[in-house]
Design a protein around this nucleic acid. Sequence first.
DNA 1: CTGAAAGCGCTTACAG
DNA 2: CTGAAAGCGCTTACAG
Lengths: 350, 350
Amino acid sequence: MSSHIPIGRKVTLNDIAAGCGVSRATVSLVLRGSPLVNKLTRARVEEELRRQGYVYNRAAANLRRRTSTSIALVLNDLANPFFAEFAAGVDEALAAAGFVTLLGCTGESPAREQAVLGSLLEHGPAGIILSPAEHSRAADVLAAVGRRAPLLLFNRELGGALPEFAHWDQLMLDNQHGARLATEHLLERGHRRIAFFGGHHDSSSCRQRHAGYAEAMRGAGLRTEPHWRIECAPTRLDAAHHTPALFAGAFAPTAAVCYNDAVALGLMLGLNQRGLRPGHDFALTGFDDIAEAALGMPPLTTLSAAPRERGGQAAELVLERLQQPQAASRQTVAPVRLIVRESSCPPPIT
Amino acid sequence: MSSHIPIGRKVTLNDIAAGCGVSRATVSLVLRGSPLVNKLTRARVEEELRRQGYVYNRAAANLRRRTSTSIALVLNDLANPFFAEFAAGVDEALAAAGFVTLLGCTGESPAREQAVLGSLLEHGPAGIILSPAEHSRAADVLAAVGRRAPLLLFNRELGGALPEFAHWDQLMLDNQHGARLATEHLLERGHRRIAFFGGHHDSSSCRQRHAGYAEAMRGAGLRTEPHWRIECAPTRLDAAHHTPALFAGAFAPTAAVCYNDAVALGLMLGLNQRGLRPGHDFALTGFDDIAEAALGMPPLTTLSAAPRERGGQAAELVLERLQQPQAASRQTVAPVRLIVRESSCPPPIT
DNA sequence: CTGAAAGCGCTTACAG
DNA sequence: CTGAAAGCGCTTACAG
């Protein structure tokens, strides 16, 4: 059980009612802007509210009315700028709708996710926006949340699908289309030997991006080599380490579609170590458009998901769900935009 | 007034009590872990809680007990990685203490800050952590918050000091010391003509950093030239634009202590445009250690405030205040660490 | 147009 | 060790 912090004496409806000689009910009606109240009574009450510095106790009101004015936002990694932007977008849209954001971070741990969901649910959010931790399972989330609040899944799918899945809304990035755009862009530049670099195949976003890449390659009538698909952790460091594998076989690629920007920046490091100049001798693209992407050497061609707008969209989606609890669940796919920068050069002339 | 969202029928203490033939009071005692309850009764109740999928209604409990288990976190800019890290640190520490984070973003607007504080206060947080919007005034914050919850001020001071100020705790970065460290580091490298570049003098953090720079220069017995103090907006772009001003007079500087990393990165661009190689022909330092700092060309010597740890510290400070509402207010200054990278080269040999 | 009364889901003395 | 009763700060039919 959590600690308990006593609150100082606060001004309540009783104080206001007593202060201007009306009943609690009348004060309540004034607060809620009811047209039933006499103008003069209203003015007197409003003056008294100001005078005593009254603050509405929304928790009490919510209890009585059996409503909620909060939405839980559960994120796998707030320190990641992508999710920070997303959170800012969520909070802005929720605030505009009169809701408050209950924040919870899981640090990519399914166990912490369970704890965070449990704790936030005790505060009775009207809905939940969840960007799941890496290996979070559908069954566990379902057990924690049940039917207590509608859930919107953002960015990642959960492991181990379930029948109840159908009840959850989803907002996903168009990973497949994005990777296809990047691949087609490199094809247009004249590349034929294009690798797909980084990420792990057990991540749904990685599979989707790879599918988009494969689709574009097939569409161009091109075959791919096994060593054009290098898996590695989605970090700069691991990407740099795995760079040599790209050049291990015959038909070395002249370009790579990278799982994300971090991987692309790491590949740049790895290329430099081999004496290859990214953006001159080798072309590459990222995914996410993190702040560093525009500053890389060279600046990185990448895909932007406009995380702040996604946040606003996620907020809209849960709020709509609250209006229509029974409507069929919605699977929304957010568009992704190609941002062309210097890193996606034409192939070197051989 | 905000919208209202009806909540579905939930399992309450009454359902549990009825379900296993005890009174509500007994169930409550079980929930709160009271030793007064018979072991068998406890086991029966716990089984029933599980069976019905009971979720504790903390809002109702808080209302009855007149307690609160939430802390409001009000940030000027969550999209800024520094504050995102800070927020992650706050949330982690609060969660560990059984508290929940009520998030609010102001987007650097004092007007939105007022609205956000008002809205969050209606949810009855036990305390508030506020990183104020740029031109937020003490009087306005006081009017919004009053004595309804203890406030911890983070990162920036408020405009227009007030007697009541003394009631607020503060957690500030050691800006002055940090800038002094950077300046002394450049002095040790052999620089004598060192500029202070970027930021606006009406920002308290900028004044403090400039004071640290001036202190180090005085300490070394060095005078400074007027054109060694260039003001500009704390953005990359504006910094790049203002670069020529550094070289407008006689005694051009060989190094610059920059207001922050964004400014330093902008100055790098500006130097490149003049044909000067940062880290070779000109030395510079930043402030913040943003992710791009380590990746700059060259990597940027800078100061780290360890934002995530600051978040944990801020959470500790408010939680301590809740235990001791009457204790004298505390002004905490968080240390800042110099991170030496290639940008702070020795002066060119002339 | 205003007030008295009941109740949201919990907790907490107080009896027994 | 357990239960009946009152009350946290609100809202909402229902009278008048």
